[in-house]
């Protein structure tokens, strides 16, 4: 009885739930390999009889997949670099440096987390358009280098920084180390797990971002995958097999990244003070 309660029930539930969670993605893969006829077959076909691999090739022929991927990759990597430069600096300033602005800085960071994107959206668009930067990647990348919109990540970093003993930093100071040296040689190496977690989180969110590119990119050549797929969808909205193939191509890189970063990501999240 007790093994039934402790093992069998959770296990059955787990299998059942993961089946439910996996089904839509399997349906995506199955559809991406169907022919037009199989698409609307009744009763539905779950495993295509004759996988139509050319659906993927067709997507390559209609949209410039490599360029879209390259654009998205560029923006995402720049955003990661930006946040990883500005974020830890700010997090250090509101954890281990005892200065007058420390608590104010932290209050500001929290406030930026609560501020809706919509409040700054219009004036920023006006600002960038006055500077003739609409249509470039600057509006999508520059804010990251200055920690704008990174409140949540700075918060995560700070929570982790606080778990490092303050005495460690103080000891280094007494030994005459400069703050820059403490930061580069002590803090950053110790914070590798959380820094890489934040890096992965920034990458994931920039890779999938839709509103930013929608607002600021207006030339097909500069489109990201999200925007390219959106445009593709508006012109091909009945060809589900191609839409699904394109979606699969968009999603697979991120799943691969997740498999590599999985341990890091999950450990990092449990390491940050966010656990309570």
């Amino acid at each position: 009885m007790s093994t039934l309660k402790q093992k069998v029930i959770p296990y059955t539930l787990l299998v059942l739930c993961s089946a439910i969670f996996a089904l839509p993605l399997l349906w995506l893969l199955s559809t991406s390999l169907k022919s037009q006829v199989e698409l609307f077959a009744d009763p539905p076909i779950f495993i295509p009889h004759n996988p139509q691999w050319h659906n993927y090739a067709d997507v390559f022929n209609t949209i410039n997949f490599f360029r879209l991927t390259g654009n998205t990759m560029f923006i995402s990597i720049m955003a990661v670099i930006g946040v990883l430069i500005s974020g830890p600096l700010a997090a250090y300033a509101c954890s281990h440096i005892d200065w007058r602005g420390k608590n104010i800085l932290f209050a500001i960071i929290i406030a930026t987390m609560l501020l809706p994107y919509q409040v700054t959206m219009v004036p920023l668009y006006v600002l960038f358009s006055k500077m003739n930067l609409v249509g470039t990647y600057v509006p999508l990348v520059l804010p990251a280098f200055l920690g704008a919109g990174a409140g949540y990540y700075i918060f995560l970093l700070r929570q982790f920084f606080l778990t490092l003993p303050h005495s460690l930093v103080q000891a280094a100071r007494i030994d005459g180390a400069t703050e820059a040296r403490i930061y580069v040689q002590i803090i950053l190496p110790l914070c590798k797990p959380v820094v890489s977690t934040v890096g992965v989180l920034v990458f994931l969110s920039t890779w999938s971002d839709f509103l930013g590119p929608l607002l600021y990119l207006n030339d097909q050549k500069t489109y990201t995958l999200s925007l390219g797929l959106y445009a593709f969808m508006q012109t091909h909205y009945i060809q589900w097999e191609q839409l699904m193939a394109a979606s699969a191509m968009f999603t697979v890189p991120i799943i691969i990244l997740f498999f590599f970063a999985q341990k890091q990501l999950i450990e990092g999240i449990s390491l940050t003070g966010i656990k309570g």
Binding site: L89, R100, G147
Partner: peptide, 20 residues
């Protein structure tokens, strides 16, 4: 403190406080 917070504070003034 100000130096370390610098980039964030500039970003805050330019991309958050001003547009707000």
């Amino acid at each position: 403190g100000l130096l370390f917070a610098g980039p964030f504070l500039i970003g805050f003034l330019l991309f958050t406080l001003y547009p707000t």
